[in-house]
């Protein structure tokens, strides 16, 4: 923001998206296409072990092979689908458990609100991957426990957004009108308020999604993620990390894929937030 008085955003003219955001949208479009038609693009069976291990990129293996002789290019394509799927699933779990639990608790009254937000505080006190770590360790590393662990550890973000926006909406006339018409508190929260705070929750979703993908890869890297046969990017990085001398390509390829996709998702999430977060727009004026 400049030292000159800020002009603010006009209601009718949104600022143009920066070039980097368009490039990010392009990357994500490619990732989505790979997710959809990836199995048709593979050159080798991504799960088949091969005889030539840690071989550099060649005509036969476009991105070389890893320590098991598996084709890195094919695994990367399947990994795109898996990493995006597990990341999105975790973010969905967070959105649904965090957002809905908070809304229903707020609607039911101060007692449930206190209880639910005490749990939220508790999860927030075990920050970053600490909660997910304790959770995955307790329930054995598996696809389900990773998704649940990440979903629960990111749920507080949605719960806090839901509480703040719910309170804003309850101060508006339409919720009073619904109350006068005899709607119950749960009905007001789920039928009237929820559609109005959906935008805020979805913006938060866009911010949380890349973090879920990254966290999955961190858990996998620590050996607590999805099973070793599942080639998510984190898993590929984890298994290739021990062979950086023989096969640097096997570790660089998934790292680049992971970095590009999460970076692009974050840029898009940031653009969404700037465009649809009314609070920040108001401050800018």
């Amino acid at each position: 923001m400049s030292m000159i008085a800020p002009t603010g955003y006009s209601r009718y003219r949104m600022p143009a998206l920066p070039l980097m955001t368009w490039i990010s949208i392009g990357f994500i479009a490619v990732a989505l296409i790979v997710t959809l038609i990836g199995p048709f693009l593979v050159t080798h069976d991504p799960y088949m072990f091969g005889a030539d291990m840690n071989s550099p990129p060649s005509k036969e293996h476009w991105l070389g092979t890893d320590d098991q002789g598996q084709d890195v290019y094919s695994r990367l394509l399947i990994g795109t689908r898996l990493s995006l799927f597990y990341g999105a699933s975790a973010a969905c779990v967070a959105l649904i458990t965090g957002g809905l639990a908070a809304l229903i608790a707020m609607a039911l009254g101060p007692v449930t609100e206190t209880v639910v937000f005490a749990v939220v505080d508790l999860i927030r006190a075990l920050p970053g991957i600490l909660f997910a770590l304790a959770f995955v360790v307790a329930f054995e590393p598996s696809e389900t426990s990773v998704v649940l662990a990440l979903g629960i550890s990111f749920a507080p973000n949605f719960a806090l957004i839901a509480r703040a926006t719910y309170l804003q909406q309850m101060a508006r006339p339409y919720t009073d009108a619904a109350k006068v018409l005899g709607a119950g508190r749960l009905r007001i929260a789920l039928v009237h308020v929820l559609p109005n705070i959906g935008g805020a929750l979805i913006t938060q979703f866009a911010i949380i999604l890349p973090r879920c993908i990254v966290s999955e890869s961190v858990l996998s890297f620590l050996g607590l993620g999805v099973s070793p046969e599942t080639p998510t990017w984190g898993r590929m990085i984890a298994s290739a990390a021990s062979f950086t001398e023989d096969a640097p390509h096997a570790v660089i390829a998934p790292i680049l894929a992971l970095s590009i996709v999460t970076f692009s998702l974050a840029l898009i999430g940031d653009a969404l937030r700037r465009r649809f977060d009314p609070a920040r727009r108001r401050i800018a004026q």
């Binding site: 570790v251 999460t262 840029l267």
Partner: peptide
């Protein structure tokens, strides 16, 4: 900002090792 949110430190670490 975006770097710190999205690029996991362990992957940069491995790249630096390589």
């Amino acid at each position: 900002t975006i770097w710190s949110i999205t690029i996991p430190t362990f992957s940069i670490g491995i790249l630096c090792v390589v």
